[in-house]
């Protein structure tokens, strides 16, 4: 129950599940991700329903999308998922310093992804693909933007966790936080895989 009775170096094997609070947090977060799945499922449905409603004279997905940038963004985000796994593995072997480094790398990859996405959106707006242009553009920006907002929130969240680990160390209170942040990061990665397929690849083939 009381996390701070443990000191560094004497952590149980899976510190995120060592306390009832930790187990509650992990289970609650799995359920939350279930709800998030419905959220993105609905956004995908709306996008699929509206993606052909481009309107006259507006840029089509085939003209807009540049797969090179999107592929780079995909590569960066998938790699960040791998680095977040390394962070959790370091946590399980109780290596705090490597864990913090892997988390920092994850955040940096997340920022790089966001940078590319902002550049991409900026570019689209210049080509006349604004939020209010058509039903296609609205549903595109809503779906991809919701995902981008999730990445942004994840970057903030993991940054705060890094600071906390620095200050408080790894214990049975902080370990579940890192673990669920890792789950969150994987989830937004999986969502991106679907966005890459449904929005960009399907957009390119028409």
């Amino acid at each position: 129950m009381s996390g701070h009775t443990h000191v560094d170096g004497h952590l149980p094997h899976e510190p995120e599940k060592a306390t009832l609070e930790g187990r509650n947090k992990v289970l609650g977060f799995w359920l939350f991700l279930g709800g998030e799945t419905v959220l993105f499922g609905t956004l995908f449905s709306a996008f699929l329903a509206l993606r052909h409603q481009v309107g006259d004279g507006n840029p089509t997905p085939m003209e807009l999308f540049d797969l090179k940038i999107v592929a780079l963004a995909t590569f960066i985000l998938l790699t960040s998922s791998l680095t977040s796994v390394f962070a959790i593995q370091s946590m399980h072997t109780n290596k705090v310093k490597p864990m913090i480094w892997w988390l920092i790398i994850t955040v940096l990859f997340g920022l790089a992804f966001l940078g590319l996405e902002i550049y991409e959106f900026y570019h689209y707006v210049h080509e006349g693909h604004k939020f209010s242009t058509s039903a296609f553009s609205t549903s595109f920006y809503t779906l991809v933007g919701f995902h981008g907002a999730h990445v942004f929130f994840g970057v903030l969240w993991i940054s705060i966790l890094i600071a906390q680990i620095f200050k408080k160390g790894l214990n049975v209170v902080t370990a579940p936080k890192v673990y669920v942040a890792g789950m969150y990061w994987h989830f937004i990665d999986v969502v991106w895989v679907f966005i890459f397929t449904v929005v960009y690849l399907m957009g390119k083939v028409g």
């Binding site: 709306a46 329903a49 509206l50 409603q53 481009v54 309107g55 939020f131 209010s132 242009t133 058509s134 039903a135 296609f136 553009s137 609205t138 549903s139 809503t142």
Partner: peptide, 23 residues
């Protein structure tokens, strides 16, 4: 989606711009 339509000129449910009320 309805908030975006109402406050940020989105087109989810706006048929004139390709939106779909049945959605």
């Amino acid at each position: 989606a309805m908030m975006f339509d109402r406050l940020f000129s989105g087109n989810f449910f706006e048929p004139t711009n390709g939106g779909n009320a049945v959605l």
